[in-house]
Design a protein around this nucleic acid. Sequence first.
DNA 1: CTGACTGCAAACGTTTTGCACGGTA
DNA 2: TACCGTGCAAAACGTTTGCAGTCAG
Lengths: 139, 139
Amino acid sequence: MNYITILQNHNLKVTPQRLEIVDILYKNGHINIDDLYKSLQSKFPSLSLATIYKNINTMCEKLFLSEVKIPHKKNVYELSKKEHSHVICSKCNTIIDINLDISTILNKAKQISKFNLNTSSIVFNGICPNCLDKKENLS
Amino acid sequence: MNYITILQNHNLKVTPQRLEIVDILYKNGHINIDDLYKSLQSKFPSLSLATIYKNINTMCEKLFLSEVKIPHKKNVYELSKKEHSHVICSKCNTIIDINLDISTILNKAKQISKFNLNTSSIVFNGICPNCLDKKENLS
DNA sequence: CTGACTGCAAACGTTTTGCACGGTA
DNA sequence: TACCGTGCAAAACGTTTGCAGTCAG
């Protein structure tokens, strides 16, 4: 399914700005508002931050965009997909998705809390292989 | 260890405002800036938001206060303790701490990501027992 | 007594809103 | 053509800063 269809399926008009926003989200995976704005400037010099905010908000409402909160970082956005966890490098801020089987801890959490749980938000923090290499080279 | 000692150990002067902030944090567990401000108004009618922000920030820097990011909610703050997970009710916003053994998924995450991971942030979302009861009474 | 803390006001950065124009369907 | 989306400017919001007066140690 391409971007055009995705937009149309959610009753959103297909504008060049929107197509590029979705394209950047698709290619980047996770991006914050500022970086998204910077990425769009070359193609749309007159594009305004207001447009980005309006689009991000409507896309989040339509649920095909998700907001991800990372401790001590700005919120990032990603195209919605099957629930997954995030791993972030505290040096270079690279974020990757990982699929974990969380059924065991989810059940444990239900049991302990007595809550009826449905969603989870899991972020691991550490250093990515790239930054680990750099560190070793320094010493 | 009481609040006074905690503050002194971190080279912070013991002011009535600070004592009350720590007391509220201790009793509430998790609170956002606005609610903290409201809770303080009765005791300190002239207390300013700036004071709260300054205190929260210094206490976070001194690492005896932690910021918790909850999806689609304002950040909340809690007195630092051993790493733990959070469960939040999407109806009434009650937040509780739970201790889970996350070593299995942490190892799996390390293995998949090749990152050197150290901290994690885990939030489960659902409905608390209280709100579940209310729902049943309605039907 | 001295440095740190408070409270006020102003400044700042981010996000939202209103409106006129332009583009999509 | 009708409506939705864009871009600009202004407004709103949350947070930070500077400063003068006050308080804790």
